[in-house]
Nucleic acid binder design. Sequence first.
DNA 1: TGTACATCAGTGAACGCGCGTTCACTGATGTAC
DNA 2: TGTACATCAGTGAACGCGCGTTCACTGATGTAC
Lengths: 210, 210
Amino acid sequence: VGTERRHRYRKGEGARLRGDILAAAGRLLAEAGDADAVTIRAIAAACGVTPPAINQHFPDKEALVRTLLRQEFEAFRTALSEAAAGAADACEALRRRCQAYVRYGTERPGEYRVLFSARRLGPAELGIAEGAAHPGAAAFGDLLAAVERCLPSEGEPRAPAAQLGLELWAFLHGLVDLRAGKPEIDWPPGERLVDAVLGQLGLTEAGRVT
Amino acid sequence: VGTERRHRYRKGEGARLRGDILAAAGRLLAEAGDADAVTIRAIAAACGVTPPAINQHFPDKEALVRTLLRQEFEAFRTALSEAAAGAADACEALRRRCQAYVRYGTERPGEYRVLFSARRLGPAELGIAEGAAHPGAAAFGDLLAAVERCLPSEGEPRAPAAQLGLELWAFLHGLVDLRAGKPEIDWPPGERLVDAVLGQLGLTEAGRVT
DNA sequence: TGTACATCAGTGAACGCGCGTTCACTGATGTAC
DNA sequence: TGTACATCAGTGAACGCGCGTTCACTGATGTAC
């Protein structure tokens, strides 16, 4: 990597290249936003290695992308949960989670796109989306739970939590994806749009008390 | 096309193949949802013609896709405007427009994706997105105008129309794109979600009168 | 009415390219004796 | 302490494939005389 020649790993340490490959592939995938556009040859070049060296660690390209996608889902979910962790109440936790969602998607459009907008070589095609084990479904489950906790537990029933959750998710996803795809539009800060929508959906502490 | 051999067009009618090419390419693009995945060779085969015949009508693949995208944008915009045309009042017009948006995106996921989610060989990369001339921007302009007409013209000012329009657009786009990408989720009817969100954003006739 | 000819709608073969993957190999390195 | 050897981390060349595009061509067809 860089100008200096790469030294091959010592005899017992060959497995370390596997980590290097995943790291380089992750960087390239984030730039491209499309696993099809990331070639084995480019990953190999980024690692300072020849293409066949990659086939020693992953049987084929699909296996590599699958591993990578699981990592990315994990990172996304963790980022959102960490953001929500320190909140004082349930609605503030939901708010922080939503803000983190948009922030993550905006700051890492390539990663986000691969997780939630990919068709070819996306989660579905790679067999990652298996019911509840689907990491995307897990992230949505987190969001849904956060919505439920913020809703009034008794009193007059609002819209069912599942429907509110889907509405909110559609908005968050649409905001991230549209912003990435239509940068020529003059977007207001994502934070403001998220706060506004949470208010309009009745998902704020204020809305709860009133 | 089909089992019977294709007869080449008569001497003056060569230009008709151009239309056939666009029609076949449109069908393939709708299936693939990605212009990269639609090959010149596949289009030629669908027309019952050899690949070089296509280069006689379009200088290269980009030109073909560009022409196609303009057509698709036009069709999308027309579908929405026609849906809104017969409405009794401005809020009903907005509602019909939004329902048509989701219906169009759900019934034709491939076309929709190419218009609003493509990165490679999408509107931006093909130079179709030039300010106000951008057909996507035109469609969004229609939506924005519909939102403005539905808002109370006087009385207490709600959120600015531009922001409401973006919120609404993000929701509609997110709904269409998520549904297409996560079919394993049990989605409620799009119509109900759209109505619910319009109500929560205060964009219904009822909301206006009250 | 008949014929020579320019034009037109394609064809067929080939090109250079980049891709993922295979296979036999090589040379350094740790280990067993 | 020294040496033979098995193992390991890769390399280098090649494969078959599908792609968009080029180029010279062919054969039917309308038109001019």
